[in-house]
Each structure stands twice: as C-alpha cells, then as structure tokens.
Design a protein around this nucleic acid. Structure first.
Length: 430
RNA sequence: GACCCUGUCGUCUAGCCUGGUCUAGGACAAGAGCUUUUCAAGCUCUCGACACGGGUUCAAAUCCCGUCAGGGUCACCA
C-alpha cells in the first residue's frame, strides 16, 4: 500500500511551493490507490502558530486535497526521545553538555558512501565524511527536523517521500538515521523548485506566494492546480488543459521534470480564463456576492440573483481573474458609470447631442426592448444619419459604461435597461 | 568556498532512456492582420531555442568527457 505524506511547518501560510509539493504527493497517492497523510511539523514552538495551521488546512481543502490521516509532531515528542535513547544505548549517539549543563543528543556520523536512487533524478551519491555529526534532540528537549522526520516517516509507514529539491542534501543524513534505527528505507523523489521571475526562489518580492492570495485574487483552484501541474509535468500530447481527474489517470512520477520552473502569471491568467469560460455561472455568482457586497454594489439579503447570473454569463468568457468582474462590470451596479478620463477624451469631446438624443428616442420608442431590436434601431439610425456605425458605437459605449472596452454594445444596452441607458445617453446630449 | 542538482524559443514544455522520421513540435507572451462594435474574447500569420567546446558514430538535441552558467544545501529553522 502506497502511503505518502505532506509535512508543512506552520510557520507561515501554505505557499505556492508547498501547494505544488502537496499536489504531487496527492496525485501520486490517488494514482496508486494509496493514502495521503498530512503531518504538521510544529516542533519549533516559537515560530509555529495555530493560525497558520488553520490557514494551511483551509488552503489544502480549497485545492481539493483530502487527507486520510493527520498528525502533529508536537504530540509525539516521547517517540523521538525513545528512539534517541535507543541510539544512545546502541552507542551510535552521544550526549553533549552545554555550558549551562543542558544535554543534547548527537548522532555520530559514520564514514561511508550513501547512494540514493531518486525516482525523478536517478542515482545520487554522497560522501558522509563531508557531513558533520547531527543533533537529534536539542538541549531544550525538542527533536531536530531531520530526526523527527525520519522517526515519523518510518512509524507512519511512509513508502514514498516526495518533496522539493531543497531537501536533496537532507536525504543522506536521513538515510543514515533510517539505517541506524533499523528502519526500512522509503523511495525518494525530489521535485524541481519553482522560481520567481528574478531567477531566485519564489518570494514575496517577486509576487504573491500564498495559495490563499491566489484564491483572493480570483483564481479558480482547478486553474491553479492545472498550472502548477504543467510547471513540471506534461500529459505528453501537447495539451495544456488537464483536469485533476485526468492527471490522476495519466500521472507517472518518472515523467516529472528535473528542471526548475519559473512561475509565470501570464500563463496562469490564460489558464484561469479557460476555466472561467466553462465554469458554472451559479458557482461564480456565489463567489462574487461577497465581493460585490464589499463594494456596496449589492446587498446580499435582497438582490436580483437572476440578473447577476446574466451579467456573469456576459463577462465570464473574457475575465482573466474572477475578481476582475467587480471592476469591469461596475457600471451595471452604479447609478452613474465611473468615467475613464482617457475614454471620455477620445470619444465624448465632440458634440453628439443630436445623435445621442435621436438614439435615446429610438430606444424609448421600442415596443420590444431586446438585443435584436436594439441593434436594428441603432443600425437604422446611423443609416439615416449617413454615418459609420462605429462613429456612434464607441461614444455610446463610453457614455453608458465609462470604458472603451467591454461586452458587445447592444447586449450592454439590453442588460442596462431602457431607462438607465436613456438617462446616461442624455447626460451627454446638451 | 565545499558538496549536490539542472541546462531545448523571453516563459512552460514535447523530443533524450531505445542516435536517423527534428531544416526541433505545442502552449503562454510579444508583433502583424482579420473579426467592417471595442478587447482584455475569437480566428490567422510572424518572430523565436538544442549553453559552449571536444569526442564516439555513416549519422548526436539525443551517448561520453570537459568548460561555463543558473539553482540548492551546508543551523541545537523546518
């Protein structure tokens, strides 16, 4: 039975790199019908915070990763102590006293060559003479990372350790501990790191790092997962859009790339837009309600949900991020559109009183106020006036929306309604 | 600095294991055009890469060696 684990430290939010490690562990467990175990590595009492634990669990759920078992290292200190004592008795470790008289337990590193057969990178060899003796239990009684990690992975029967590249140099240290404790070795697989656009480690300087930030920005979890997947794995048939279900079916850890990848928002935006297009408007509307309420565009207790749904359908194919809806569709919720100065300058400086008045009148006279008839009356008008359609379309769009870009004009007029459209047009017809 | 990992278009990648089908394919971005209603949507086209040097071979992106470059790790943090 395959058992893998994701072992975050609650000293910060779940970040992109952690999310990606969780993704590959979860993916591997699902593809092998195995178990996905979550272990909170909270041995550092100073830096570990309950709020980070909550945040990490929440983000993992948002990404769709359900864990089969959950452990906290802070509840397992006696296990580490017990195994350290075992090594002490066996003569494989020794005690070191600090000046204040506190005792730490140190592992005596033997001289040997250590070989790792990494599932992604192949064979890697290390020389233990380059590794100094390792602290097992610190003088404050808490275990070190490498020690707690080995004890837990062994006791929790972890079969495959899938983690970031930055742990490669921990691997020989851990392997020596497995051997000293008499535990069976798991398989190792080291994922390439994700880099920021500056070439270094992904950091807050180069953009958002927390998974929850991406949720707040309006990325769908399916899209973020798809993008993370593509950063170091490909389905092999030139496809860019791969659902997580398909990935479970196609995934083979041997096909994971060795090269570190740069996190590129542009492509994430594109993928997110692809998912937004096909997303259920009901679901999108649900997520939009609190955002619209924040802006006082709606009141969640009494608003026209059917109308919101229509607007979501109108915009969803062109949004890179769901949250963009709030700004792009603002003119549907405000009494007056927020006028973009450049747009006004470009399309509403010449006097169009006659044309706008006439169009407002035509709209008023429409018996059947629908998209087809709105467009027909507009086309009729510009034909009579002998002007090009676009000469009037652009100014009308700016008058109605305050923007030069947006959905098709006649749809905008239809959803805005007769009265609001007329009022906004007449404002520019002095 | 030592050790370890990695090097295909600006970015993500396919191809590499099992050399020839690769004048290196796809996607994002960028540029141009079309869509005679905009674009941040759609369609079409263009630009653009095997890090470098040597070797093996009839033949190398693919195998070997070296160089260089980038990254990671060297804590009583995890």
């Amino acid at each position: 039975m395959v058992r893998v684990r994701f072992a975050p430290s609650p000293t910060g939010n779940l970040h992109i790199g952690g999310g990606r490690t969780a993704l590959f562990n979860w993916l591997f467990s699902q593809s092998q019908n195995g178990k996905f175990i979550l272990r909170i590595e909270d041995t550092d009492k100073e830096r570990s915070k309950k709020e980070f634990v909550d945040e990490i669990l929440y983000s993992l759920k948002w990404l769709g990763f359900n864990w089969d078992e959950l452990y906290y290292q802070s509840e397992r200190f006696e296990r580490y102590r017990m195994h350290a004592d075992k090594l002490l008795k066996a003569g494989l470790a020794y005690i070191e006293k600090s000046p204040e008289g506190k005792e730490a337990i140190i592992y005596k590193v033997p001289e040997k060559k250590i070989k790792v057969n990494d599932l992604i990178r192949g064979e890697i060899e290390f020389d233990s003479t380059l590794i100094k003796d390792q602290v097992l239990i610190k003088s404050d009684g808490t275990p070190t990372y490498n020690f707690a990690c080995v004890v837990d992975d062994a006791e929790m029967n972890i079969t495959h350790i899938i983690r970031g590249d930055d742990h490669i140099s921990n691997t020989p240290k851990q392997i020596m501990l497995y051997e000293a404790l008499g535990f069976a070795l798991p398989d190792f697989a080291h994922l390439p790191l994700i880099m920021g656009v500056d070439g270094g480690r992904l950091s807050k300087r180069t953009g958002a790092t927390a998974i929850s930030d991406y949720r707040k920005m309006g990325y769908l979890s399916e899209a973020l997962l798809n993008y993370l997947l593509l950063l170091s794995w490909a389905p092999g048939d030139n496809r860019e859009l791969v659902s997580i279900q398909e990935a479970v079916r196609l995934f083979d850890i041997k096909n994971v790339n060795k090269t570190s990848a740069t996190f590129d928002l542009k492509k994430l935006d594109w993928i997110n837009n692809q998912y937004l297009k096909d997303a259920d408007p009901e679901k999108l509307a649900d997520e939009l309600v609190p955002l619209l309420e924040d802006k006082h565009y709606i009141n969640k207790d009494h608003f026209d949900r059917g109308y919101l749904l229509l607007l979501v359908k109108l915009f969803q194919a062109r949004l890179p991020r769901l949250n963009d809806f709030v700004d792009w569709a603002d003119f549907f919720f405000l009494d007056e559109p927020v006028m973009d100065p450049a747009a006004q300058e470009k399309y509403l400086t010449q006097d169009l009183s006659k044309e706008l008045n006439l169009f407002a009148q035509r709209l008023d006279n429409l018996q059947c106020f629908d998209i087809v008839n709105i467009e027909a009356s507009f086309r009729e008008l510009v034909a009579e006036l002998g002007i090009e359609a676009k000469k009037l379309i652009h100014p009308v769009r700016v008058a109605l929306t305050g923007k030069t870009i947006g959905p098709g004009l006649f749809e905008v007029i239809y959803y805005l309604g007769k009265e609001r459209s007329k009022r906004r047009l007449l404002k520019w017809a002095k």
